[in-house]
Simulated assay, not measured.
Amino acid sequence: MGAWDIGHFDNDTAADFGGRVDDAEGAKKADVLREALAAVAGTGSEGYAEGEEAVAAAALVAAQCPGGEPVTTAYGPKDPLPPLPEDLRPLAVRALDRLTAPNAEPLDLWAEAGEDQAWLAGIATLRAVLAGARGE
């Protein structure tokens, strides 16, 4: 696991994802986020790489929600995102729920590193912002 901290962009996979978001044309940035979230939210994978991309995407979506924290890390996208479609919010919640389920690889890896509770707290904060924006 190429991670240096528990932040949503503090790993190689998420940092590379931030670059992919920057490389996408303005109107396509939401599609990059949707793809990352859908890969985990559906019947797709809960693997480490997919999971870390989905967490990064969820952080970017949450940043545009009421109460969301801006993504200010140097490892996230450098360019501002256009307003994102609101339908990304429930998709992000579903992805986060899958990633925090028992036996999800990212959770298992964070547990092996002794950081599962801190990682889960960060995920819970994201989920609360996203769910609150959905009116749950």
Rank of each mutant, 00 (worst) to 15 (best):
L130E: 02
A54Q: 09
L91Y: 10
A49L: 04
Y75E: 12
A121H: 12
W119I: 06
L130Y: 04
L37H: 10
L84I: 00
D31Q: 12
M1Y: 10
A63D: 09
G132N: 03
E35F: 12
V40D: 11
L91S: 12
G42Q: 12
L33I: 00
D23G: 09
T13P: 00
G135A: 03
I123A: 11
A54Y: 10
G122F: 07
L33Y: 00
A56Q: 04
E115Y: 04
A133V: 04
A30G: 07
D97Q: 09
T43P: 06
A38H: 08
G26A: 11
A118I: 13
R34F: 09
L91K: 07
A49N: 13
N103D: 14
D12L: 05
D22W: 01
A24P: 06
A63H: 09
P80F: 05
A133L: 05
G67S: 05
L37N: 11
L33C: 00
E136G: 07
E69L: 11
F17E: 00
G44Y: 09
E35C: 10
F9H: 02
F17V: 02
E25C: 09
G122S: 07
R94A: 15
P77N: 08
L37R: 10
L99H: 13
V21R: 02
A27Y: 11
N103S: 10
L107K: 01
L99E: 13
T73I: 01
R94W: 06
G67L: 02
T100R: 15
K29R: 15
A58Q: 05
W119P: 08
K29I: 04
P85K: 12
A39S: 15
N11G: 03
T72A: 04
D23K: 05
R20H: 08
G67A: 05
A27C: 08
G132P: 03
D23E: 12
A101Y: 03
